[in-house]
């Protein structure tokens, strides 16, 4: 018993790990909340597209030596615009066009990142550096949780109605509601990408929500389970990383994806 307690408490003695725990827990709350609405509104694919499509902006910022936040914002804007434009090209169907654009942007980011001019540490843009979070990152994550909590709670009735059937019979405008969700997504990606990385941030957004969707039948339990799974997965992933000496962001993603697969398998009979 004492050894278990010691194993659980040992990582907390290091300030760097304490920060990482706090950052992971805050991003877990944010991802669990927002991700639930993204899943209910069938925005998982656009969410993934934006997260991955912003990579050239991040790499560009690292190359130019400007703040990553600036690069992330520019990258998001470019990704959102190209994805929106690609969807209007009549030559191919929408999903294929978006997939082509995202693959191109991701590839562009990696090519830029592998250029001789690029500084070391490009890998942390892809996989995050949750052990390197600053006080500023923690404040930003805390503010994000606050903003998401308030906005999503106020918008809840409309979000629920629009996700249900588009809301047209009630005179609600689905476009406005989806735009709100995508704006919140942009803000979340800006804050979360430095800790979790461009590739792995999607896991915290979508895997807990998918897990909760499989396990629950009502909105409130779904939100609660999604947040609980995200926070537990983030913290569990950090423990895994501490003892198995695996990359922190990747360990968190692995735990969350495993939870999702387990929940889907356990409830397979319900959807089959």
């Amino acid at each position: 018993m004492a050894t278990v307690l010691h194993a659980l408490s040992a990582p907390w003695s290091e300030p760097i790990v304490r920060r990482a725990f706090l950052e992971a827990a805050l991003l877990g709350v944010a991802g669990g909340l927002l991700g639930s609405w993204l899943v209910l509104h069938r925005l998982a694919y656009p969410a993934e597209s934006l997260a991955h499509g912003m990579l050239p902006g991040l790499v560009g910022a690292a190359l130019l030596g400007v703040p990553l936040l600036l690069g992330a914002a520019a990258g998001l804007l470019v990704a959102a615009l190209t994805v929106a434009l690609a969807g209007r090209v009549a030559l191919v169907d929408r999903d294929s066009a978006v997939a082509a654009v995202v693959a191109t942007l991701l590839g562009l980011g990696i090519v830029l990142g592998l250029s001789p001019a690029s500084p070391p540490g490009i890998g942390s843009l892809l996989f995050g550096d949750v052990l390197g979070v600053t006080d500023g990152d923690l404040v930003a994550a805390g503010a994000l949780v606050l903003v998401l909590g308030v906005v999503l709670a106020v918008a809840q009735p409309r979000l629920l109605a629009v996700g249900f059937d588009g809301g047209a019979t009630l005179g609600l405008r689905a476009g406005v509601v989806d735009a709100l969700l995508l704006t919140l997504l942009g803000a979340t990606l800006l804050v979360a990408v430095q800790g979790l990385g461009n590739l792995l941030v999607v896991a915290v957004l979508l895997a807990p929500a998918g897990t909760a969707r499989a396990l629950t039948r009502r909105l409130r339990p779904m939100l609660a389970v999604s947040v609980a799974v995200a926070v537990a997965g983030a913290i569990g992933g950090l423990y895994l990383s501490y003892y198995a000496r695996t990359a922190a962001g990747a360990s968190i993603a692995a735990v969350l994806v495993l939870a999702f697969v387990a929940a889907r398998l356990a409830t397979y009979h319900r959807t089959a």
Binding site: L40, V154, R158, L160, F164, L170
Partner: peptide, 28 residues
Amino acid sequence: RSRLDYPVSALDVVLMGTIASRPWWQRP
């Protein structure tokens, strides 16, 4: 046209009909 796997009860669906009668910031 509605989604049958959506996590709402019959009462939740009826409550959606009250949205228009409230200011945007007010919950049911």
